[in-house]
Design a protein around this nucleic acid. Structure first.
Lengths: 209, 209
DNA sequence: AAAGTTTGTCACCATTTGGTGACTATTTTG
DNA sequence: CAAAATAGTCACCAAATGGTGACAAACTTT
């Protein structure tokens, strides 16, 4: 009955589960969430689709487990603070936004998740976003709210616009667009221009809000 | 051979074409572009799918024709300038961005098109976006570039961030999220906060860039 | 090694989807 | 009105898709 956990056997439940989860990740990054069909997932995993039903209950549960498993924001949030947090976190916020802009530009999986979350309702995505919100609250409540006091909602709203903007521009750059307001989002010079503007906007908030 | 154009006949090519185009619009707004299947389009149009092939050549050409047909930006751009254009268009730009933020929030079709353009490559969407870019160039080259001179690229990049931000927040509000940076994007108070920030950011650009 | 349990394979089914050929009905033209 | 052209219907096909029951293979336990 009870099976050895760390067996290198050919037939291994846990290993098989991982293969399916990996297949979901691969398809998601290469083709997007719309391409997550049972048959294809099984094909990519090199296993029989029946096992998806045996082990996860179905396609949806498998996908939900994948989403829960991956800590999508872990790489993007840049909590490692290479800059001292003072002055209401001005330099820190600036650095975080700039690095997010480039990080999201490069990470296909993250883009697909962002896009997915804009495209359809799904419990697992909702939870993911809530978790990230909760995480952001730490920074906001701990550092920026005290600094901006009664204007903290103003600060938050401005940050919402700026961060959203970086997300959108990164997504925009992938398929049908490359220039936005005449700025080439896929060009190093254009991206540098955007980064300069991000810095300017954030500094403006800190100095003039 | 040649048929009367304005006939009220039961069997009418042009009328039937319009029904299909309307069906595409309805499905797009209610279910999104992924739900645009030939069978469903025909069902909604109340006609036989064979006619889609006869009249348009296929699903894709029908969809492309729909996209070309609708002037998606016509309502959003707000070119009607209810504010005098002076001071580099400061007041005009501010009003335009604020009204876009609300307009996109309400227009399901526009949201779906935006989302679609972020989701997959498609010639018709690319053209649509190019057309809108060309349109924006008029404002940029005619009014803001002269005002900002050598800093015009900076201005454009900042506007790209701000406009993108409004788009993203509007899309974000629909399915899995409602608060971004702690601001409720579906709440009047939250949206007011965002508008205040949009105004602040644009004014900052005009006064401090 | 036999029995029991878990893991995996395979053939099969139902539904959905995109697509078409052959036909009928209507309208237009001579 | 008859012939020709156009509009529309319908049955049908092939491929893709989601899902499952019956069985075989491997592993564990006794």
């Amino acid at each position: 009955m009870e099976k050895e956990e760390t067996t290198g056997a050919v037939r291994n439940r846990e290993q098989t589960r991982q293969k399916f989860l990996a297949a979901v990740g691969e398809i998601l990054t290469t083709k997007g969430f719309a391409a997550l069909k049972v048959n294809d997932i099984a094909k990519v995993a090199g296993l029989d689709k029946k096992l998806i039903y045996n082990y996860f209950g179905g396609r949806d549960q498998l996908i939900d487990e994948y989403i829960k498993l991956k800590d999508f924001w872990s790489n993007v949030k840049g909590e490692q603070a290479s800059v001292p947090i003072n002055n209401g976190g001005a330099a820190f916020v600036e650095e975080m936004v700039l690095s997010q802009f480039d990080y999201v530009y490069r990470d296909e999986a993250f883009q697909k998740i962002l896009l997915w979350s804009l495209s359809e309702e799904r419990g697992a995505l909702k939870k993911l976003i809530e978790a990230q919100e909760a995480n952001g609250e730490l920074l906001l409540q701990g550092i920026t709210d005290p600094h901006f006091g009664e204007r903290s909602a103003q600060f938050r709203a401005a940050m919402a616009v700026i961060i959203s903007g970086t997300y959108y521009l990164d997504l925009f750059s992938k398929y049908n667009g490359t220039t936005f307001c005449g700025i080439d989002v896929n060009d190093e010079a254009g991206r540098a221009e955007i980064k300069k503007s991000l810095s300017f906007l954030i500094r403006s908030i800190y100095s003039h809000l």
